[in-house]
Structures are given as structure tokens and as C-alpha cells.
Design a protein around this nucleic acid. Structure first.
Length: 517
RNA sequence: GGGCCCGUAGCUCAGCCCGGUAGAGCGGCGGGCUUUUAACCCGUAGGUCCCGGGUUCGAAUCCCGGCGGGCCCGCCA
């Protein structure tokens, strides 16, 4: 079931209009957006002699007998096409097509630009080509696809029908482009670091493991590009970045997916303050350019709220934010005292590091209440093995995280460039791993990375910006899977046309080619 | 890994508590209509009630097991 099989195909074949045989290309001269801006000023009922050529998918067909309205959608929006009997009559091709074209089909239309009595810019068709047939019914109605299972299984339908999802995918591209422009203007070089790595690092997460047959070696899919980008800083690329796919073999939920995209940037001779400035500029300027304003309306859960990216963003010390929420002093409190506070909040912490307890309390109490972009700064030393010690107090590191709408969006710091301390912190991480085993993520020892910075890494600042999460927040989408074009779904038993209708296979194998071009 | 919820027509969902011929709207198909916007009017077809087992005279409905999905918690961004 599911096929909208009409005898239509054989009618098309008889008329020599089978799109699989005849439709190889179509000259599009204008898209919806342009058409509307160029001809929006026409008066209702006004007809021009301007001939245009448009193409797209038919979403709605309104047949009134002598006149038919088609809503065509291209990548930029809707174009109304009018088929009028007085024009169609006598043209056997148009007569047949105006009868056979259905919702879902993809067509090309040549005609004159007119504005209807009701004021809609439209194309009055003079010629129509059927470019592709929709054999399966597409649910074009107000609710689109709702069943989450089907949304992800047939994501092309979800992207087609759900404008929020479609816009998120398009706008993420635009944001990436704007960020690239800004970085390019500042002299940053974009690179690709390895996705197959002999030692994973740059974050604390379980990696995917695979084998390179040619080398007979176990390798890990990159969990972060960080250590490689910093090797490049050592190599003299003093401003580098990557829009990197990262793989982390952890559980999936509304804000986590095993593959995701981060922009990581490193700048020599810069520190965490410079990186906060860079982060502010990248995020707020790209959003301004894509959405037209620093303030973006976000519709989520039925209500519309405004996200304000205007600089400068609020900055708050990690421990201050906790004290504010808790109304208790926590600075200088021991691990045991913090554990007690965590316990009173019903937060269980297995990790032995004091900083981890602080982080857990922070995530529970503070993060959900952050709305506008906020930098949280000054993190504990013991949970940041790659960050540089705070110049004002060695118990902290010069690290910041960016939160927007209750989500962690970015993480950056003054990079640790001291190879001796780097070795020591990796050692501590190794100890932690042995102590706790698989329960706690720890950074593995990476002596090649240490060797690299032993050659001398300048003082450097770095930041990673989670692009999917940024898009979730700006697009008002509740799940990270909504902004990822395709996600993994369970296997299905799918019936396809060819196995249902062998006669179609026989027909297409027997089609004689026409003249080549 | 733990808890809660969901799976019925192409889509959105009702029916399930309290067992008794499987329903609605939209969409599809056929017909009508020359200015519609989710067009309208008339007619009509369409089902492995996720899968397997059990209870029962009888199961979409109750019970058990499985599969798929969502949300929350734990862990990671």
C-alpha cells in the first residue's frame, strides 16, 4: 500500500510525455522570492506580457472546471500557477497534463506574469512540462507530519512539509557562511583535521572505535578537533579553525546526538577574553546578518519569546551564579560540603572531582534559567585538563562557557601551553580513569600532543561553538534531531514500485533512446 | 542503564477504562464548476488495529513477552 498508482503513467507514455523518458532539464528563469518582489506592485487583475519559466513541486490543486490553480513551491516559496481552459483548449499536451497533474508532482511552467483579482502574483501558464511524478501520497495539510517516528524515518517529507525544520537547515548554512566570512576577514585559515585518530582527545567522551585495514590499526573517530588544531598553532598557523563533525558514542536525547558539528577556532597570542569577544562577534553578527536583527523571535511551546544577541553579553562567574541561585556561600567549600549540598538537591555525583560536583549543581540550578546569551566564567582546575590556570588563583582555569536558552552552546579557554603541566594533568586523568573505570570520562594521555607543545606553543585562546545547538535555540526547535538533516532510524520493510509492478520494469528496459545531447 | 507514555486508513486522531460487525476529518478515486488560497458541491473506495503468545464462546480493547518511537532521569556538548 501507499502507492498512488494511477493509470496516469500509461497515458503519459502514450502521449510521449513520460518524464523519466523526456524530462532531463528545465530552464528556470525566476524563483518565487524574486517573482514576488519584482511583481508585487502589480494591481489586482493586471496582466503583464513578461514571460517567465518556473519549476517546483505542486502542493495544492484547485480545479474549478474552466480554470485551475496550482500552488507550486520552489526552494524560496510559493508560486501560484493558473491553467485557463481558453489557453489550454486545442493543445493536446496541455489538455492531458492539466488533467493528470496531481499534488506532489514536480512540474515546470512557462507563462506570463499576472496578478489575480484577489491580488496574488501568479504565472498564467502557456506551456507545462511534467518533470517528475509523485507516486506516493504526500500529506500536504496543515499539520504535516506529526508522528515523530515517521518524521525521522522519512525525513525528506518532514523537511519538505515542516517549514521550521526546512528553515533551520537553510539558516544553519547561512550562519556557517557568515561565520566563515568573519573569520576569513580576520585572517583565519580553515582546515580539516583527521576524523580517524590513533588517540582521541580534546573532550571527555566515549569514542567510536574502528579499524584501518591498510594499517591493521585500531583508530577512533574524532570526538573533537582540538588537539590537532593546536598542533597547527604550534606549526605556525596562528589563526586556525574548523567546522568539524565530532563523533561521541554516548546516549541520544533532545540535546545530544552521536555526530554533531562544532566550529572550533584557535588564535595565537590571544586569551580567554579575546575568545569571548570572538564568540560574541561570530554568533551575534552572523545572526544579525541572517535574521536581520540582533533580536530574534523564537516560537517554542506555543509562545513567542525574543532572544537578544545584542553585545555585550552578560558575564557571570560560575561560583557566583551558583551562590545566587542557592543563596548560600559555596566558594572555598570542601568536596564533602559540596557533596552534601548536591545531596540535598537530590543530585548524585559519582565523580571524585570537586569541580564535577560544582558543575552538576550549576547545571541543575542555574542553566535552565538562562535565556539570553550569557558567559559563565572561571571553572575549577580539576575538570579542565586542557585549559590554562587562572592567573589570579591556581584553583581555577581561564575557561568560559556560553549558555543560551538553557543550553550550553560554546566552551572556550586560554589554552594550556605548558607541556610539563599538560603531562601532569593527563597523568591525573589517567589515574582518574583507573580509579573509576568506565563510569567517568577522562582525557587519555597523548604524548604526541605534549611533544608538539614542547616545541613551543604561543599563548593561545580557543573556543568551540556547537552549531546544531545554536540552530536549535535560534530556530525554536526542541530536539537536536530536528536540525540534523538525517538521523539513524531502525530498519524497515519497505515496498517499492519496481517490486510491485514488474511491468514498469519491462517497459523502462524497453524504452528506445532519443537523440543524445 | 532506570522510570513514564505512545503504536488503529496515505496523514491527524477517536474507539481501549467497562471485550460483542473497525470509525471521523483531511487526503485518494469518479463527477460538476472560469479567480481560488486547506476552494466548494455530489458520489465512492480504502485496514496485518506494531509483532508473537495467553485468557475468553468472542480481543483493537484484558494479561504476558518482544519490536519500534517519544519524554524524563543517569552520562556526554
Amino acid at each position: 500500500m501507499g502507492f498512488e498508482l494511477k493509470s496516469k503513467i500509461w497515458e503519459l507514455v502514450r502521449a510521449g510525455l513520460d518524464p523519466y523518458v523526456v524530462a532531463y532539464s528545465f530552464p528556470v528563469t525566476i524563483v518565487s522570492e524574486e517573482l514576488k518582489s519584482k511583481y508585487g506592485g502589480l494591481n489586482p487583475g493586471e496582466e503583464t506580457g513578461d514571460r517567465v519559466s518556473v519549476a517546483g513541486r505542486v502542493w495544492h490543486v484547485r480545479r474549478h472546471g474552466g480554470i485551475t490553480f496550482l500552488d507550486l513551491y520552489d526552494q524560496t516559496g510559493k508560486i501560484q500557477v493558473i491553467l485557463r481552459r481558453d489557453i489550454v483548449r486545442g493543445n493536446s499536451k496541455l489538455e492531458l497534463l492539466s488533467k493528470l497533474i496531481d499534488k506532489g508532482d514536480i512540474i515546470g511552467v512557462k507563462g506570463r506574469v499576472v496578478k489575480t483579482k484577489t491580488g496574488e502574483v501568479s504565472v498564467l501558464a502557456e506551456d507545462v512540462e511534467l518533470l517528475a511524478i509523485a507516486w506516493r501520497q504526500i500529506p500536504f495539510h496543515e499539520f504535516g507530519l506529526k508522528d515523530p517516528e515517521q518524521r525521522y524515518k522519512e525525513r525528506y517529507l518532514d523537511i519538505m512539509l515542516n517549514s521550521k525544520v526546512r528553515k533551520a537547515i537553510i539558516n544553519l548554512y547561512k550562519i556557517e557562511m557568515e561565520m566563515r566570512k568573519i573569520l576569513d576577514e580576520k585572517g583565519f585559515i580553515e582546515v580539516h583535521t583527521p576524523k580517524l585518530q590513533p588517540i582521541y582527545g580534546g573532550a571527555l567522551a566515549k569514542p567510536f572505535t574502528t579499524t584501518v585495514n591498510a594499517l591493521e590499526r585500531t583508530v577512533y573517530l574524532s570526538i573533537a578537533p582540538e588537539t590537532y588544531l593546536k598542533r597547527l598553532v604550534v606549526a605556525g598557523l596562528s589563526k586556525v579553525y574548523e567546522i568539524a563533525v565530532c563523533f561521541r558514542n554516548e546516549d541520544i536525547d533532545a540535546t545530544h546526538y552521536p555526530e554533531f558539528v562544532q566550529l572550533e577556532a584557535y588564535q595565537a597570542y590571544a586569551d580567554w577574553n579575546d575568545m569571548m569577544g570572538l564568540t560574541e562577534e561570530l554568533v551575534s553578527e552572523s545572526i544579525k546578518r541572517v535574521y536581520g536583527d540582533y533580536k530574534v523571535e523564537v516560537e517554542a511551546g506555543g509562545e513567542t519569546k525574543v532572544l537578544d544577541f545584542t553585545r555585550p553579553w552578560r558575564r557571570v562567574l560560575l561560583e557566583d551564579s551558583i551562590e545566587e541561585a542557592l543563596k548560600t556561600k559555596i566558594k572555598g567549600k570542601s568536596r564533602e560540603e559540596l557533596l552534601e549540598i548536591a545531596g540535598s538537591l537530590e543530585i548524585e555525583v559519582k565523580d571524585p572531582r570537586r569541580g564535577k560536583i560544582l558543575e552538576k549543581i550549576f547545571e541543575r540550578l542555574v542553566v535552565p534559567n538562562i535565556w539570553n546569551p550569557t558567559f559563565v566564567t572561571l571553572f575549577p582546575r580539576d575538570i579542565s585538563p586542557l585549559a590554562r590556570t587562572y592567573r589570579g588563583n591556581p584553583e581555577y582555569v581561564e575557561r568560559f562557557e556560553l549558555y543560551i536558552a538553557g543550553l550550553e552552546i560554546a566552551n572556550g579557554y586560554s589554552e594550556l601551553n605548558n607541556p610539563i603541566l599538560q603531562y601532569y594533568f593527563f597523568e591525573e586523568e589517567e589515574k582518574l580513569r583507573k580509579l573509576i573505570g568506565q563510569e567517568v570520562e577522562a582525557h587519555p594521555m597523548d604524548k604526541d600532543y605534549i611533544r608538539a607543545i614542547e616545541y613551543g606553543m604561543p599563548p593561545t585562546g580557543g573556543v568551540g561553538i556547537g552549531l546544531y545547538r545554536l540552530m536549535m535555540v535560534v530556530g525554536g526547535l526542541p530536539s537536536i534531531k530536528d536540525v540534523i538533516p538525517f538521523t539513524i532510524t531502525a530498519p524497515e520493510n519497505i515496498k517499492v514500485l519496481g517490486e510491485e509492478f514488474r511491468d514498469l520494469i519491462d517497459y523502462y528496459l524497453s524504452v528506445k533512446p532519443g537523440p543524445g545531447v
